[in-house]
Write a protein that binds this DNA or RNA. Structure first.
Lengths: 225, 225, 225, 225
DNA sequence: TATGAATGAGGCTTCATTCAT
DNA sequence: CATGAATGAAGCCTCATTCAT
């Protein structure tokens, strides 16, 4: 189901399996519970979700959940593992590394556009999970400490180096590269957010074309001259 | 009511009183409860907040809360009134109207920068309230229906007309003005979000200077040539 | 209103004003509260009634109720005063005395029939009050202690003497007169109860004719031969 | 189920086990809660009873009650099931059918007397349950809708047919058989009621003898001649 | 005396968690 | 390991009662 959109005609399918399929490290039941938790939490929010419903959704008894997760909160924290493992790790390793690696052969427009489209699709696919964690993290920041302390700095640094290189070779104007990334990421994040918050206003949009234009605005705003 | 002081002459801090000060229409106790609710909800989230704590924070008995709000949920909904009344109404009426009205005399850079700085400060000041409503709205979209249906279209339309005018007179490139606004708003919103989510990364930044640069990137990216 | 049925063509109108009209001993507000209490209690029962609703119904503030009745329970007890004063006192004094007093001139059928019809109408008129007190008395028997200890014995004794006289003069069979009264009263009480509990079954009945037949059954069952 | 022991041979106490003993259809805990509810409700009334006390009385935790009954009101409604199942169903099926079936062999006095004594004992045994439901039904008539709509008509019809037969064969006078039953039932019901409401007056009575006399009064009042 | 806002004890109900089977 | 009945702490909410005005 989530894979039906994998007919991406892009260069190569960059990470395609970020939905919650069984991992080798976890038992099948473990995964069924996690999947059910994402479904339920993302519908009602963590606080308004009931372990009984997660159990029903997962097709196990309520007691079984507590054989795998000591508390309900642990179930929420448990969702972060796949989020980090499968979502952000590739974010750094695969895609971003590829940016630099293909930099020589491809135009910056192409690279940024590919990355943008890829990230947007990845986020969209994992939106329920992200929504759940984000909403709860707003009040329990420690939930995303691993992200903030380990993942974010790497992403920021990687992208900053990339932008710095463009500044150094005279392509970009001389602006703090961290601010550049912040601006770029905000644009993309805001695009996804508004798409989901204001569906009526934007539902008939051609996503790919719009993203291209956004990247275009960014690049024009950033390029020298 | 809150607008009666809007006879502020110029560019200096536009609207400063959007925090939750007593309104003439509501009793003092009514307001003390709402303020306490914002404080508590924004700390722990709606679901994890206890009416007993809101009561203690407001300095009233728990029962008194329910003399003013039939249910705990009503207390949450009650927060939207000030959000709309004091936050979004001025957003449309004051600032945005001012954009068009001062367009002739001031450069577009000046105008957008003023608006940006003003909006950021306004949001920052009301961040607890916004955070609370936003987190809950993620799972109960009907909470922000009034915003989505009444406020958002007006803002989008006002800003789009403004951008359209720039396109018409050849200043901006020919891009869907709604997408322009979406991009602009995303940048600003993302700026605030990252400032609060990744404080360590960005805490030493000069906010005003950074915002100026962001507006600059946007304008450069959008301007013809 | 309650008096519109006072076109009773019977011998003479035996007590007609037992509804809750102001008494000389109580202030008007006092009475308005009592009347409202009867209305509300008889609709929802004592436990499910709210003093706030009694206040609204009485057209006074909630606090005022507690100027007249120390507690809500006192309000219930307060209802018994009129019940006794206006309902049972006449029951004994007027009607029953009249039974004996007119015994000489009228047939026993006539007397019993008059009394029965009169009692039924009186009870029907005060049914809300009676229902309220009865339901609560089921769980707080002390509520009707005054009735049980003072009123009931008198009624029983008066009626028993009356029946005993019939036995003595050979009209009635030799049955314990207390049992006679118990049987007679049960018939009448049951008639009213079933009329109100099973309305569908009995609503098209001719009340007066039926009561006449019931008295008839009783008399035939009791008369010698 | 409760009827399986109805192989009682003759006139001796028909149905004796109508108290709240475990049914095969309900779990033991379910029954313990119901029994406790009857005990507590019949002591204090539904409104003044506390679920905490029902729990203590039943020997379960308060939460357990709500695993079996969604609300406190459901607990009250739940009491009607045994009331109907075990009390009124036999009322119709066993005893009343028996009236007609033994009519040929036994005198009408014998039959009516047996039925009366049996019903009185049955009611006495279930008095707490009946009292509870009756008191609440006074203000929530829908509680006894099943009784009013299904049970009562059958009882009325069965008894009426029986009385009609007596009229047809010339034993009884020509009186509406429904009124006959109403009168008869009122007498019996009133007997029980006064026994419980005015205990002091009637506590030394020989119940069986009194009931015999009451039936006698009724039969004499109803018989031709 | 009348008011009605404020109180706060206590009720019903929920639900994460445990544990005997 | 799976189950699900039982638990009981704790939350939301009600409402009789008080008291300052």
């Amino acid at each position: 189901m989530a894979d039906t959109t994998n007919d991406q005609n892009q260069r190569d399918n960059i990470e395609t399996e970020f939905d919650l399929l069984p991992d080798s490290e976890l038992t099948e039941k473990h995964w069924k519970i996690l999947e059910a938790a994402v479904r339920v939490f993302s519908e009602k929010g963590f606080g308004a979700s009931r372990t009984s419903e997660v159990a029903k959704e997962a097709g196990v008894s309520e007691g079984t959940i507590f054989n795998y997760f000591k508390t309900k909160k642990d179930l929420l924290v448990g969702l972060l593992i796949p989020l980090v493992t499968r979502f952000f790790r590739p974010l750094i390793l695969s895609s971003l590394e590829r940016i630099l690696s293909t930099r020589k052969e491809r135009s910056i427009e192409e690279v940024l556009h590919d990355v943008t489209l890829d990230r947007v699709q990845l986020i969209q696919k994992n939106l329920p999970l992200i929504k759940t964690v984000a909403a709860e993290a707003a009040f329990h920041p420690e939930l995303i400490d691993p992200l903030r302390e380990q993942v974010a700095p790497k992403v920021i640094e990687t992208m900053s180096r990339y932008f710095q290189a463009e500044i150094d070779n005279g392509t970009f104007r001389d602006i703090d590269p961290k601010l550049l990334f912040r601006t770029f990421a905000s644009m993309v994040g805001g695009y996804i957010l508004t798409r989901n918050v204001l569906p009526a206003e934007y539902e008939d949009a051609d996503e790919e074309a719009e993203l291209k234009q956004m990247v275009d605005i960014f690049l024009n705003g950033v390029k020298k001259q």
